[in-house]
Design a protein around this nucleic acid. Structure first.
Lengths: 102, 102
DNA sequence: TAATAATATCGAGAATTATCGATATGTCAA
DNA sequence: TTGACATATCGATAATTCTCGATATTATTA
């Protein structure tokens, strides 16, 4: 499994991005779901993050990209929405990597 | 235990600093000990890192500072030398923090 | 006490990151 | 096909980080 520790740590070195990961642990506590979307499985879309982050859509999108490239979140496009969820497998791997390698 | 996740992740977002942490896992494999110094317990001094990093003394000293402020390493001054070791307790805590909070 | 060695700190320029507004791209619905 | 959204990307500026050389500080020793 590919893993770029520095890219991962950089992705985690930002309050807003940590916030995103945190919100995604219990999305129903922080967001109102789209009709018929199970946020646990499908995720949360960019505009929902944009609103909650209180930053521009551009920034939200870029932060999500950074988290995704680092392997921390996964993306699924449905219609005009792009949903993001945590990649729990990968996050577990990173935890293991930290415990073994750092 | 007091912990500043962002500061920690920033400290880890640099190849040389990860290298330092790695070398300190098995210091005797990477450094020649000073007389009477048990590197496992006492540590490795700034000039030893400087040489191995192939960077200036200034940079090495600052990197060690960053790691220390993040809580990843501990310092002990003996005479004119400053020795650094991993703070294994704290590193374990950070691993646990990652697994529980991220 | 002076000279020397090890380390820490300061100030600066280059490189990277944060964040924005503007615009391009993709998708649905009329 | 056009209009309206949702998202992604581009270009720019401000802020932060990297890294250095120079210098200050601390400790040892002649």
């Amino acid at each position: 499994m590919y893993m770029e520790p520095i890219e991962i740590f950089k992705a985690l070195s930002n309050e807003s991005r940590l916030q995103i990961l945190h919100w995604l642990k219990e999305p129903e506590q922080h967001f109102t779901p789209h009709e018929g979307i199970d946020m646990r499985n499908i995720g949360v879309c960019v505009s929902q993050f944009t609103e909650k982050l209180n930053m521009t859509q551009s920034t939200a999108s870029q932060y999500l990209s950074i988290l995704q490239r680092a392997g921390l979140i996964k993306t699924k496009r449905i219609g005009k929405y792009t949903y993001y969820t945590r990649d729990e497998d990968q996050i577990r791997e990173i935890g293991a990597f930290f415990n073994n390698q750092i």
